[in-house]
């Protein structure tokens, strides 16, 4: 029934594409997760200030990016950022090129998408902090920012680590949609390879395996981090 032919895998060109594609996928996933993490942290902090207009802006941001398909967001950024205005003249060739590469557009789009999810995750983490902890910090003279940095953020980020693992897993998988805007990541090269070889099933099985391995490794790493950061009485703490 299965007549799989992996002989094309011996071709160094395809090997190079797979490796480069995998590295780009990892790069895109980690960079966008890191930015999303920062957006989430500051977005959730801003929400605690309870400034009406700021709340409305953040709310709108979260709703827009959480409730629309990431593929649509990516296409939107790719076509708006690269065509509307943001172009520059390449000093070497004198040709007008988009200021932002496809990779940059995918990174911005994925960061905002993940950022919206991270804001919600951190918000739930901060909401679950015992109010007593905040009161104690205030009574000890901590300023708003110190309180967030030294006490609330360290506890809240531990509480929402499992949620962050989910978001990062999602980021990893969503990077595949960047292939549509020609970002040369794993999915993009996979397409190149099966267009060349017509070995669609073989390529897809291999790519599936690579994604499973990457995300499993990520989950394993996150669980390790959860263990290391755990403190008694919460989550994985004994």
């Amino acid at each position: 029934m299965f007549n799989l032919d992996y002989s094309w895998l011996a071709d160094p060109v395809y090997q190079g594409w797979l490796i480069r594609g995998t590295l780009t996928t990892i790069e895109l996933a980690f960079a966008s997760s890191a930015i999303a993490f920062v957006i989430g942290l500051f977005g959730a902090l801003a929400l605690t200030l309870r400034i009406a207009w700021l709340d409305a802006v953040i709310e709108l941001f979260v709703e827009v990016f959480r409730n629309t398909p990431p593929l649509l967001q990516m296409l939107f950024f790719y076509f708006t950022l690269s065509t509307v205005g943001l172009r520059m003249t390449d000093p070497a060739t004198g040709v007008s090129v988009p200021l932002l590469s496809a990779f940059a557009c995918a990174l911005i789009s994925l960061s905002l998408f993940g950022g919206a999810l991270c804001i919600e995750a951190f918000r739930s983490g901060l909401d679950s902090l015992p109010r007593a902890v905040t009161e104690a910090a205030r009574s000890l003279g901590y300023s708003r920012w110190q309180r967030f940095r030294r006490i609330e953020a360290p506890i809240a980020s531990r509480i929402c680590l499992p949620a962050l693992t989910n978001i990062m897993t999602n980021q990893f998988k969503t990077t595949s949609q960047a292939s549509v805007i020609t970002v040369p990541e794993l999915m993009y090269y996979a397409g190149q390879i099966y267009n060349d070889t017509f070995r669609t099933a073989e390529v897809m099985i291999l790519v599936l395996f690579i994604y499973v391995s990457l995300v499993s490794l990520l989950s394993w790493g996150m669980v390790r981090i959860e263990r290391v950061l755990a403190f008694p009485g919460y989550g994985k703490g004994a």
Binding site: P130, V133, E135, A137, G141, I151
Partner: peptide, 16 residues
């Protein structure tokens, strides 16, 4: 707050 400290019913220690 430097001059006045407070001890709470629920201890309110920092768990981390």
């Amino acid at each position: 707050r430097h001059q006045v400290s407070m001890v709470f019913q629920q201890y309110n220690l920092f768990p981390h």
